[in-house]
Structures are given as structure tokens and as C-alpha cells.
Design a protein around this nucleic acid. Structure first.
Lengths: 352, 352
DNA sequence: GGCAATCATGCACAGGTGGGCAAAGGTGGC
DNA sequence: GCCACCTTTGCCCACCTGTGCATGATTGCC
């Protein structure tokens, strides 16, 4: 059957040199060479950067390629070059403002250096980080960027041994070997406490989530430690998975009883938005009059007029730039990198 | 410092004769076959679904593969099968709530049917839809899903001739050939007018953007036509690219002069959020007391307590399911499909 | 005009995989 | 015990490309 297709193919090509709409198959360099009257190598060289081809053949090849609709098969090219131009992005919660912004920044920059992003979604029960890393290996990705999830260390090692770069973003776990890009969670959390303390708040809560991500835990702990230094005890509430709803629910719990807090550090802007809405709509509180709120991430919604949230900006572009540098330069050193987060002053904290 | 980690690594595995950490290359089926003492075909068959292998060889192969860290090279497999398991998603504005939700739904489902998503970001000047379609062809994608951007018709034809499925979502352009999945923009816009008219609003505005997307234009026009039927004239404002800022600015322009509208249909929830914030913060208006607002998309933020936006829900999951059906069934018919949008009643429109 | 040097071109191989084909091995029935 | 049939296995080819090597062509220089 396959052979038959071959024969039909040849006949078809004899009669109609252009494109036959019934032929449902990709054009190969062989066909272009035949049409242009050159060798297949000439076709290959025409599309290879820096190869030696005369201007005349080059033009002939390009014309034939255009006519047939030829496009270089990157899969075959990758096969021989052992460098597939594919970069895998492993991410959960794609629909989240922060992650989608990171995705946007990364895909855009990867295309700028002639790579292409393969996105593996590890949300839900459909696939875990292990299956994702397996895909990475299946497609001979040049690099793997882990935005969320905790990949098994053994598979990470396999990836690295296979010549991949493995870049973990905001996963300050204790996995050794891969490159680790993270953010100064502790420093920012400490600064958050100072902000709130300076403007007179003393009953300070922490709104977190049940996710238990290392970076969220780091923020919680550093904040609590800084509070303890000031002789304060920060009550931590985790009302659900990271998101608006958990923030809202945390607000309900925190603000209903007696001795309600006069400030909250939300480890994520999404939590902060939910928390603020609960404070205003459910309890009629004024932010920042009755309650000061500090968030983390600086997602787009933090800047919306309804929230005007004082928060810390994640250096998304700087992180993405660094990722690009690491992907494109094979000699770039591995190891930890820590990025600073910058405070963004808006109106959810009283002026001192 | 990091080099130290590297060395420690090699030393740790020094006792193990199998993998040499200096060899930075992928393992091939040949090596697995040698280690397992079988032919390379046996290895191939072990990882091919439905091939005939005895349980004994299968186990030997699996053990050897595990030991070496072997993973089937999907690039080589795609080379011979003319079906690469890669599905290209062409999308701009990845960071947008609606698009990122669609991306989430699609990637998750694609993985469910053993495909993998290659995301091509056409935002900014970096790349247009043409370059994106070229990538699609370069990687022999099984299908191409266009979420935004208007690809040149000639390239779409090339894609289809090469055996790809091309699926356009919400791009109700006049390109023939590809599969077109769209949403009943006109019907929803008409219903939006009826909602606002029924609750007594008569000076009705349309908040749109300068993007000029076919679907946005369809909403504008159908709304204006329905208004004209009622003897009303809908003033259209386009204050910038689709997003919060343009909605805010549109609010400034619409609500400042005399004869300000008492209702607005925002062709996108993001525009609606900006518009509502302008109305409240800049003009002290009450929604829905002074001003009724209807949006479109039902993004997550529309349900947040600060907005409580009455809007129309895009059938994201139904669209994604249909995409999956089209991708997995090569015999599925092409042509147009139109999905219904369902109104979501919240509190930004007065009860009748 | 002759010679050397640069350049372009074609051949052949490699890269990893799937599958057809034939042979071998094993098993059941008579 | 023999034969037929089924399962398993190995060999070989095809898929499409990049590139080293050798050869032919062309040009520049003396």
C-alpha cells in the first residue's frame, strides 16, 4: 500500500509538476531537486546557513521550493544534528496570570533565538512531572524549563546526562544538578513585614494556600520570622489552592472573629485580590483605612483601580532573559541564581 | 562551586559501568539492544503499540532501557510515520485571561490523546502568522490551531495539501478550506441589547477596541443593528488595543461629557473591567444603579466580587473538545461550526 | 597559455526508527 | 511422529536531512 502511494506519487509528479491537491503528503528535498534539475545536496545546502552554493543554483532551488511548497523537515534535521531546537516548558496552572505572563515572555524570546516552545501542562491528574520529563526526552529537547511541579531527581539526571539543560524556575527545592533560577522570597517577605509594621499595623496575618510550594513556604516563614523579631505573632491561614477563592475564604475566616487583624501579607496577588474583596464586600472594611494588604507577584490585576495593590514585582523579563542566555550558550555555568524583587507602592497600605 | 557538584555526581555513579557521565548524548535503541542481547527490532517492537514481542524479550528490553535511560526518539519515529504527534497552537496575547484559559484546555486535552502542543507566539513584531505557519510545516505538525492572527490563505492551503488539519478558532474570516470553529457573536450581541433594553436603558454605548478582529466587529455590528431595530443609536468607542486600559480610557471618554450613557456593552470582559473601574473611581457612578454593563467571554475576573459582571460565557471546554475530536479523527468533515454562548447573570445589570 | 587556487557540485554515509518479509521455533492435532 | 499453524525474531529497507570527501569547473595570476 505504501509502495502504491509511492508509485502514484511518481506518476503524479510526472504529469503535474506543481501541487496536486489530492496528494496529502509533505514535499521532500528530493522532489525539489528533481524539479530544479540539481542534486539533493544543492537543496540541502540552499537551506543550510553558511553552506557553499552558487547564486544561480540557489535561485533555481528557491523557485522550485516555492512552487512545490517545500519546507525543511526540522525533525530529520534534528536527527542528524542532535540539537532539536525544541525547548520544553513544563507548567501547571497555565491559566494563571503570573504563569501565563511568564509563558508569554519565554515563548516570545525563544522564537527570537530560533527555538520553539513545546508546552507540557501538568495540571490535573492527566500528567505528572514525570510524564512531562519523558516527553522532553522523547523529543530530544535542547532544554527543559520547569515552571511548576517537582520532577523526580533521577529523571532530571537522565535529562542532563543526555545533554539537555534543565532550568528550574522558582523551584528552590534541593535538587542538585539543574540550573536554578529563583527569587529573593525571604528578602521580600521581610520587607513586607517592615512596610506593614512601619505604618502602625500590629495584628498581622499571612494569607497563604494549601499548595505547599517551596517558594510560598519560604515567603511564609521569612515573614513569620521577621514578625517574631518584632515580637509579633503572624497568624497563617491556608484556605485552599492558590487563587482568588482561597483568598476570599481566608478573608472570611480571618475577619469574622474577634481580634481581627489590621494587616495581611498575601503570598500571592491572586490571594490578595480575593482577600480584599472579602474584606470589602463581606465586612464593609476599608483598605487601607481598616486593613493594610501586601501581595506578591505584581500580576496585571494588582494594578487595576479596584485593587491598587501594593505588592512585589517578579522580575519576569529578567528571568526570561537569563533563561534565554542559558539556553543559547551551552557553556553558561549552572548553579543557583537569585533575582531581586522590587516593591511596587500602590494604595493598599497606609502611607507611613 | 557548581563544578564541584558535577564532579560529585560523576563519582557517585562511578561504580556503575553503564552510563558515562561525560557522554552527553541520547541513548539509541541500538545500545539498548546490545545490552539486552536482542536485535534492535525487538527494542523497537517493545515500544511499539501492538507489535509482536514475547514477554521474556519485552522484560529484558525494558530492564536494559531503564538502566541506560532510553527514551524512544519521537523525531525519528515521526520521520517514518508522517504523523508527528505535534500540534501547533498559534496564539497572540498568551497572557490574556481568555487565551490562557483556552491554552490550558487545549494542551491538557491534547496530552490526553498522546499529542503534544507546540506553542507559537505571534505577539509583537517578533513573528507574524506567516512565520508561525512555516514552523508548523517545518515540524510536520499533525494539525495547526490558530487562536489569533490571520494567516495568509496560500500558506493555509499548503498546510492542508501537506495533510495537516488547520483549525481556526474564532477567526470567522472568509478563508475557505480550513475548519472554522466560532461562536455565535451576533446572537449574543443581540441578546445583550435585549438585556439592557428590558431593564430600561436607552442611551447605550458599545465599548470596543482598535484591534478590528472579525469576531469583535461582528459583536459591534450585531449590537448596533439590534439597537437600530429598537430605534436607538449605539455609540461605539474604541480607545486602544483590547484590554483593561482601553476599557478604562473608553469610560473616561464616554462618561465625561453631557448625555452620558446609562448602559454599555463591552465586547470583552477585560474592556468591561476597565470601563467599570473608570465609572466608579473616576465618576463615582454606581453599577448597576447608574450604569448597566454587559461583557463578553466570562473570564475569571468577571466573577470576582469587585466586578460581578453579567456576561456571556465562551464555551471553552466545548470548543476544546471539538478540536480534540477533529485532531484525532482524520475523517472528520471540515467546514464551519458555530457554538452557542450562554448568558451569565450577575449583578452589573439591573433586574428587570 | 599554463598553472594554481578557490569554488561549486555530486556521491555516499550517518542519524534513529517502524514495518514488511522470510525464516525459525514452538505447539497442538491427528 | 508428522504436519499445519501460529508466534516470535532478525534482516533489510525507507523515511529526510546534513556533511565530509573527491572531483570538476572557473577564475586569477604570471
Amino acid at each position: 500500500m505504501h509502495r502504491w502511494a509511492k508509485v502514484a506519487h511518481a506518476g503524479e509528479r510526472a504529469g503535474n509538476p506543481v501541487v496536486d491537491s489530492r496528494r496529502r503528503s509533505f514535499v521532500s528535498a528530493r522532489q525539489v531537486a528533481d524539479l530544479a534539475g540539481v542534486s539533493r545536496s544543492a537543496v540541502s545546502r540552499t537551506f543550510t546557513n553558511g553552506a557553499s552554493v552558487s547564486e544561480a543554483t540557489r535561485r533555481k532551488v528557491l523557485r522550485a521550493a516555492e512552487e512545490l511548497g517545500y519546507h525543511v523537515n526540522h525533525l530529520a534535521r534534528s536527527l542528524i544534528q542532535e540539537q532539536s531546537g525544541i525547548v520544553c516548558l513544563i507548567v501547571a496552572d497555565v491559566a494563571t496570570p503570573y504563569q501565563s505572563r511568564m509563558l508569554d515572555a519565554l515563548t516570545r524570546r525563544l522564537q527570537g533565538i530560533d527555538r520553539v516552545a513545546m508546552v507540557i501542562n501538568t495540571s490535573g491528574a492527566s500528567g505528572d512531572a514525570e510524564a512531562a520529563l519523558r516527553q522532553t526526552l522523547n523529543y530530544r529537547a535542547a532544554a527543559t524549563i520547569v515552571l511548576s511541579g517537582t520532577p523526580p531527581a533521577a529523571l532530571v539526571t537522565t535529562c542532563i546526562n543526555s545533554g539537555q539543560r534543565v532550568i528550574l524556575i522558582n523551584r528552590d527545592d534541593e535538587i542538585a544538578g539543574p540550573i536554578n533560577l529563583s527569587v529573593d522570597n525571604a528578602g521580600a517577605a521581610r520587607e513586607a513585614l517592615h512596610m506593614l509594621h512601619r505604618c502602625g499595623c500590629r495584628r498581622i496575618a499571612v494569607v497563604s494556600s494549601t499548595a505547599g510550594t517551596p517558594s510560598l513556604l519560604a515567603r511564609e516563614r521569612a515573614f513569620a520570622a521577621a514578625a517574631a523579631e518584632r515580637g509579633l505573632e503572624a497568624r497563617v491561614v491556608r484556605a485552599g489552592p492558590t487563587g482568588y477563592a482561597a483568598g476570599f475564604e481566608a478573608g472570611r475566616r480571618l475577619l469574622s472573629g474577634s481580634g481581627r487583624p489590621d494587616a495581611a501579607f498575601c503570598v500571592t496577588d491572586l490571594l490578595a485580590c480575593g482577600f480584599m474583596d472579602a474584606a470589602r464586600r463581606e465586612f464593609g472594611l476599608d483598605v487601607p483605612g481598616d486593613l493594610c494588604v501586601v501581595g506578591f507577584d505584581d500580576i496585571e490585576q494588582a494594578g487595576w483601580a479596584s485593587y491598587n495593590l501594593t505588592t512585589f514585582r517578579q522580575p519576569v523579563t529578567a528571568i526570561a532573559d537569563q533563561v534565554i542566555r542559558l539556553v543559547s550558550d551551552p557553556a553558561a555555568p549552572a548553579g543557583q541564581s537569585c533575582f531581586d524583587v522590587t516593591p511596587v507602592w500602590r494604595r493598599s497600605v497606609r502611607p507611613q
